[in-house]
Computed example of a mutant assay.
Amino acid sequence: MAEPLVVIVVYVPHHDSDAVRRVLDEAGAGRIGDYRGCSWSTSGTGRFTPLAGAQPTIGAVGEPEQVAEDRIEVVAPRSRARQIVEAMLAGHPYEEPAYHVIPVLTLDQL
């Protein structure tokens, strides 16, 4: 049976998406069979209001902000997920990036 996988999803300002995809690839995410750097993206609008104590990359404390963002999804081996997420966080431009990690069921597990 193949190693368990997860899907890592992260929201990134559009102009930083390629850099974050590179970080994910270099950390070992996005490998499917004989391919690497595999990802899927869609564009949307991120909305947030930085609170007191925040040091926002974009926007100002107390002011609602809207940013063109990409939702990036990659698969990763469960055993490397923590290291990959830590690398993604280190390479992400936001102070507090939104992300989540989702377990994957393979055909054998259905």
Rank of each mutant, 00 (worst) to 15 (best):
E69W: 09
R31N: 06
F48M: 12
E73H: 12
H14L: 09
I58Q: 01
G30L: 12
A27W: 06
G91W: 01
P13G: 08
V6E: 11
P64Q: 10
Y35V: 15
E63M: 12
G30C: 10
D34E: 14
Y11D: 09
H100N: 01
T49Y: 06
V101F: 08
G59H: 05
T49Q: 15
A2P: 15
S17H: 03
G59V: 10
A76N: 10
Q66F: 03
A68Y: 04
R36F: 05
E69V: 09
H15V: 06
E69Q: 14
R82Y: 01
E73S: 04
A27N: 06
L5A: 14
I84E: 03
L89S: 02
G33L: 14
L110Q: 13
V74S: 09
I8E: 02
Y35K: 14
G53P: 05
P13F: 02
L110P: 00
A2E: 11
T57V: 04
V20Y: 00
E63K: 15
R31S: 13
V12W: 00
S43H: 12
D25V: 00
D16N: 13
A87V: 05
A52S: 13
L110R: 12
R47E: 14
R78E: 13
V104W: 04
V61P: 01
Q55D: 13
E65M: 13
P4I: 08
E96S: 12
M1W: 07
G33S: 10
T42Y: 07
L107F: 11
V12G: 00
L24E: 04
P56D: 10
P56R: 06
Y11V: 12
A90I: 03
D16V: 01
I8D: 03
V23S: 06
A19G: 12
Y99S: 11
S39F: 02
Q66Y: 04
T106C: 01
A19C: 00
P56F: 05
S79P: 00
F48P: 09
D108M: 09
R78Y: 02
P77H: 10
E26I: 02
V20L: 02
V104E: 07
D70I: 03
H100R: 09
D108H: 14
G44A: 08
Q83P: 01
R47I: 15
H100E: 08
R47Y: 10
H92R: 05
V61A: 12
E26A: 11
H92I: 06
A90H: 10
L107C: 01
D108V: 08
T45C: 05
V7Y: 01
A29V: 04
E63V: 14
L51S: 10
P93E: 07
P50C: 03
L51N: 13
R31D: 00
L89R: 11
Q55I: 03
A29M: 05
P77M: 12
